[in-house]
Simulated scan of single mutants.
Amino acid sequence: MTADKADEVMAEYLLKGGKMLAKSCKVCGYPLFEYKGETQCVICPLEASEESFPKPEAPEPVQTPQLPPEPATAQSPAPVITAAVPGPQGRVAAELERTILHLCERIRSEPRADECLTLMMAVEKGAEALVRLGQR
């Protein structure tokens, strides 16, 4: 479960009148809640239900033709073609790309300027890492 999803679930319980306790769940580490007279973890049951559904497999990467390398400049960074990179390095690059896209989506909806800046710096670091992976 993503932290964003967990935050949403906890917010729902607070809106329903639940009380967040100073104790945390020994299994998942999220705060425990007192809700309808019971102390409970509101995250673990959801994680268990997510595990019961088969997770979709990632599609096979599409092989894209490799272009001859161009010199990297400040205006045009070197292209990174992760689908053609085999093994763990390619999987790391693909995960970095997914993470960068997720961060960009969060930036679009983030109202706080300081948080946008933090997210943008994370995107920049991720892009730099992708370039380094492509050079190996």
Rank of each mutant, 00 (worst) to 15 (best):
Q63C: 08
D4A: 13
Y35E: 04
V123F: 00
A83F: 10
P65S: 14
P79T: 07
A129L: 09
D114A: 09
R98S: 15
P69N: 05
E70R: 10
G87W: 12
T39A: 04
I43G: 00
A72T: 06
E110A: 06
Q89P: 05
V9L: 07
E50P: 02
E57M: 09
H102A: 13
Q63G: 09
K19A: 07
E95T: 12
M121D: 06
C28E: 00
K19V: 14
M120A: 13
G29Y: 03
P61Y: 00
V85D: 05
K36A: 14
C28N: 03
A94M: 10
T39C: 03
V80R: 00
L67G: 05
V62L: 12
S24Y: 10
A48V: 14
A113T: 11
R91W: 12
A93E: 03
V131K: 09
A113F: 13
L119V: 06
P59E: 11
C28P: 00
E115C: 05
T82V: 11
E50H: 08
L14E: 10
A11R: 10
P54L: 07
G18W: 02
E47G: 05
E34Q: 08
D7I: 06
A129M: 10
A83Q: 09
E124R: 15
V27M: 06
K36T: 13
C116K: 15
G87I: 11
K125E: 12
M121W: 13
E95A: 15
S76Y: 07
P79G: 01
V123L: 03
A122I: 06
K26H: 07
C44A: 04
M20R: 09
A58V: 12
A129S: 08
K55A: 09
L117D: 08
Q66G: 04
A11W: 00
P31F: 10
V62K: 07
P111E: 07
A22D: 15
L21H: 04
E128A: 11
E70L: 08
I43K: 02
S52C: 14
Q40Y: 02
E70C: 09
V85S: 06
L21C: 05
K16R: 15
K5D: 07
E50W: 04
L32Q: 01
Y30K: 02
P61F: 01
P88C: 05
M10V: 01
E105C: 09
C44K: 01
E12H: 02
A11V: 02
G29I: 05
A48H: 10
S109Y: 08
P68L: 01
G29M: 04
A127S: 09
L32H: 03
P54W: 03
E128K: 08
V123R: 01
E51G: 03
V80Q: 01
R132S: 13
A94Q: 10
T73R: 02
D4C: 05
E115D: 11
C104I: 11
I81S: 12
E70A: 07
L21A: 09
L21M: 11
G87D: 14
E51Q: 15
K23Y: 08
I107K: 03
T118S: 05
A84G: 11
A22L: 12
T64G: 11
Y13A: 00
T99F: 06
R132D: 09
L101Y: 06
